Measured scan of single mutants.
Amino acid sequence: SASLEDVKTAVLGLLVILQTKLYTLPASHATRVYEMLVSHIQLHYKHSYTLPIASSIRLQAFDFLLLLRADSLHRLGLPNKDGVVRFSPYCVCDYMEPERGSEKKTSGPLSPPTGPPGPAPAGPAVRLGSVPYSLLFRVLLQCLKQESDWKVLKLVLGRLPESLRYKVLIFTSPCSVDQLCSALCSMLSGPKTLERLRGAPEGF
């Protein structure tokens, strides 16, 4: 439990870093931090981490990651405290083949985003970082199938509809809506759902 406290501190630090690096160059920093966060949550489900502190780590990670939004130009952003989304000039939600690297070039400044813009690109060529939603999407499927803490599952179920409104997140990387529907149906009809959940409301 003591070591998990250190892990929790590290994860919180990564969330803060991602919130900053999403809007700064090099964009590969945001890509790497995002991948680290998603990989860490995957390990929770792989090794069945069920301690309360592990659940709190997942809760905080999902609470942040499910706020990711994308505009029509595929640029990622996060809402501010007033709910207004600021889109990044440097990070996009497109999935890119590994051989192309985590970044790609664009020939010049991008068109203005639909929300308040981030800082304008400084040079004639900007390297865009790929932060594909499919990585998070796979972890969300694991959550629906394996999550043991009701608070975490409730958060994910509550945030998913709003995330799905931003269709560009889903359609720019390999996210299977069929698998999502299947996971939701299995969660509702499967007898093991109630068996594994802690803290579920009576009558769920």
Rank of each mutant, 00 (worst) to 15 (best):
148 S>C: 11
91 C>F: 15
96 M>Q: 10
187 M>A: 03
159 R>I: 05
164 L>K: 00
87 F>T: 06
94 D>R: 08
135 L>H: 13
106 T>M: 12
40 H>C: 01
99 E>M: 12
87 F>I: 06
109 P>Q: 13
108 G>V: 14
83 G>S: 07
96 M>V: 11
188 L>W: 08
101 G>Q: 14
167 K>M: 07
185 C>R: 03
9 T>N: 06
78 L>M: 09
70 A>S: 07
19 Q>L: 03
80 N>Y: 07
117 P>G: 10
184 L>N: 00
72 S>E: 14
26 P>W: 02
38 V>E: 01
22 L>H: 02
1 S>R: 03
94 D>H: 07
182 S>P: 01
144 L>N: 00
173 S>G: 05
182 S>I: 08
164 L>R: 00
142 Q>L: 10
176 S>M: 05
134 S>F: 08
151 K>R: 15
95 Y>P: 09
193 T>M: 09
17 I>M: 09
96 M>F: 13
97 E>I: 08
56 S>G: 11
22 L>Q: 02
78 L>Y: 15
172 T>D: 04
150 W>P: 04
156 V>L: 03
32 R>A: 05
141 L>H: 04
128 L>A: 14
140 L>H: 01
192 K>S: 14
203 G>P: 07
141 L>R: 02
15 L>V: 09
47 H>P: 01
127 R>L: 14
3 S>N: 11
197 L>W: 06
15 L>R: 14
75 R>N: 05
130 S>G: 14
174 P>E: 11
145 K>F: 07
115 G>C: 12
200 A>N: 08
140 L>V: 09
37 L>Q: 00
117 P>D: 05
28 S>C: 12
112 P>N: 15
133 Y>I: 05
161 P>N: 10
91 C>G: 03
147 E>Y: 00
106 T>E: 14
143 C>R: 01
116 P>I: 14
139 V>G: 06
102 S>P: 14
94 D>F: 02
140 L>R: 00
26 P>H: 05
15 L>Q: 14
83 G>Q: 06
3 S>D: 10
203 G>S: 07
83 G>C: 06
131 V>N: 04
180 L>Y: 01
21 K>A: 04
77 G>K: 02
182 S>R: 08
32 R>E: 04
112 P>T: 13
153 L>W: 02
8 K>H: 09
32 R>V: 05
171 F>E: 12
42 Q>C: 13
133 Y>L: 05
184 L>R: 00
198 R>H: 11
141 L>I: 14
114 T>K: 14
202 E>F: 09
128 L>C: 11
110 L>G: 14
5 E>Y: 06
99 E>A: 14
57 I>C: 03
55 S>Y: 05
107 S>W: 12
42 Q>W: 10
136 L>F: 12
197 L>E: 03
111 S>W: 11
10 A>M: 00
77 G>D: 02
44 H>M: 01
114 T>D: 14
41 I>E: 00
168 V>G: 07
12 L>K: 15
145 K>H: 15
16 V>P: 15
51 L>K: 01
94 D>C: 05
80 N>I: 07
133 Y>D: 02
135 L>I: 12
67 L>Y: 13
143 C>K: 00
86 R>C: 07
92 V>I: 10
41 I>L: 12
11 V>T: 09
36 M>A: 09
54 A>Y: 04
9 T>R: 07
149 D>P: 01
190 G>E: 13
129 G>P: 05
56 S>A: 13
75 R>Q: 07
82 D>V: 11
130 S>V: 11
86 R>M: 07
173 S>R: 03
39 S>Y: 09
43 L>T: 14
21 K>H: 07
144 L>P: 01
81 K>D: 14
20 T>N: 10
178 D>E: 15
117 P>N: 10
108 G>Y: 14
161 P>C: 14
186 S>L: 08
105 K>Q: 09
191 P>D: 15
154 K>D: 08
110 L>I: 12
135 L>R: 14
152 V>Q: 01
105 K>R: 12
81 K>W: 12
79 P>Y: 05
147 E>N: 01
188 L>H: 03
7 V>M: 03
86 R>I: 08
136 L>K: 01
157 L>S: 01
183 A>H: 07
191 P>A: 10
50 T>F: 08
202 E>C: 09
75 R>H: 08
35 E>D: 08
102 S>W: 15
180 L>V: 04
153 L>Y: 02
113 P>R: 15
91 C>Y: 11
169 L>F: 08
96 M>D: 09
189 S>R: 11
172 T>M: 04
19 Q>N: 09
161 P>Q: 14
74 H>G: 09
128 L>W: 12
185 C>M: 08
55 S>M: 07
159 R>C: 05
78 L>D: 03
198 R>S: 10
106 T>G: 13
58 R>H: 00
170 I>T: 06
25 L>M: 11
88 S>Y: 02
186 S>V: 10
36 M>G: 05
189 S>A: 13
24 T>Y: 08
25 L>Q: 15
163 S>M: 13
158 G>K: 12
88 S>T: 08
5 E>D: 10
180 L>G: 01
104 K>D: 15
131 V>W: 05
81 K>L: 11
3 S>H: 10
155 L>E: 06
84 V>P: 08
91 C>V: 13
46 K>S: 12
18 L>K: 01
91 C>W: 02
186 S>N: 13
17 I>S: 03
33 V>T: 08
41 I>H: 00
74 H>N: 05
199 G>Q: 09
89 P>S: 11
128 L>S: 10
178 D>V: 05
152 V>M: 02
154 K>Y: 05
5 E>N: 07
178 D>K: 06
106 T>D: 13
194 L>V: 15
193 T>Y: 11
107 S>Q: 14
40 H>G: 01
187 M>G: 02
13 G>C: 00
36 M>R: 04
40 H>M: 02
153 L>S: 01
156 V>S: 00
102 S>T: 14
51 L>Y: 04
80 N>P: 04
94 D>M: 04
130 S>R: 11
24 T>K: 10
46 K>G: 07
142 Q>E: 12
73 L>N: 11
1 S>H: 08
162 E>N: 09
10 A>P: 00
201 P>V: 06
43 L>Y: 08
138 R>T: 11
144 L>G: 01
17 I>F: 03
58 R>S: 00
198 R>E: 12
193 T>Q: 08
195 E>R: 10
131 V>Q: 03
69 R>N: 04
94 D>Q: 06
5 E>P: 02
50 T>E: 10
185 C>N: 04
80 N>E: 07
111 S>Y: 14
179 Q>N: 11
200 A>L: 14
165 R>F: 06
171 F>V: 09
104 K>G: 14
88 S>W: 01
148 S>W: 15
86 R>K: 10
190 G>P: 04
178 D>T: 09
180 L>K: 01
10 A>W: 00
202 E>S: 12
163 S>C: 15
143 C>S: 05
173 S>L: 02
129 G>L: 05
128 L>G: 11
106 T>R: 12
105 K>P: 13
115 G>S: 14
136 L>S: 07
56 S>V: 13
187 M>T: 03
162 E>M: 10
57 I>M: 06
33 V>I: 08
88 S>R: 02
70 A>I: 04
203 G>I: 04
97 E>V: 13
115 G>I: 14
